[in-house]
């Protein structure tokens, strides 16, 4: 082990090697399915078949439409809370451990309270009202 080695992390990498293998297996599965499909399927494309489906009538206009900004606000709220989680989870494992206690608990509630204010604000501004 050289000076530039991280101690005690061998198992860490080994664990994720397994994850990688699982992913590879999944990809292999999909590939196999597609392969089988390629062998078995017929292939007779026609114009109609390749047309975008709009309940039987010819498609009108572009398929890629502008979407409502509201989705953006949603996405952002989501990001806020997803990020909130990265603080919540590490804390969750230790807050009741010896050396911590009520103060730690309160702190996290304050933190969540701050986020809740944001939620409150969003609700008040009508972001959460689906029209």
């Amino acid at each position: 082990m050289s000076a530039l080695a991280m101690a005690g992390n061998a198992s860490y990498y080994a664990t994720y090697t397994t994850v990688l293998l699982v992913v590879l297996a999944g990809v292999a599965f999909a590939a196999a399915a597609f392969g089988a499909n390629r062998l078995l399927r017929p292939h007779r494309p026609t114009r109609e078949k390749l047309l975008t489906y709009e309940s039987g009538v010819d498609p009108v206009g572009e398929g890629w439409a502008q979407t409502h900004v509201r989705y953006y606000v949603y996405a952002y709220l989501y990001v806020v809370f997803a990020v909130d989680a990265i603080f919540l989870f590490p804390w969750a494992t230790v807050f009741a451990a010896p050396g911590f206690g009520w103060a730690t608990l309160t702190e996290m509630f304050v933190f969540i309270g701050f986020i809740a204010v944001g939620l409150l604000y969003a609700w008040r501004k009508g972001v959460l009202t689906w029209t």
Partner: peptide, 12 residues
């Protein structure tokens, strides 16, 4: 059955 079906990718 699914595996035997034609694979259609819309033109657009």
């Amino acid at each position: 059955k699914f595996a035997q079906k034609e694979d259609v990718v819309p033109a657009r």
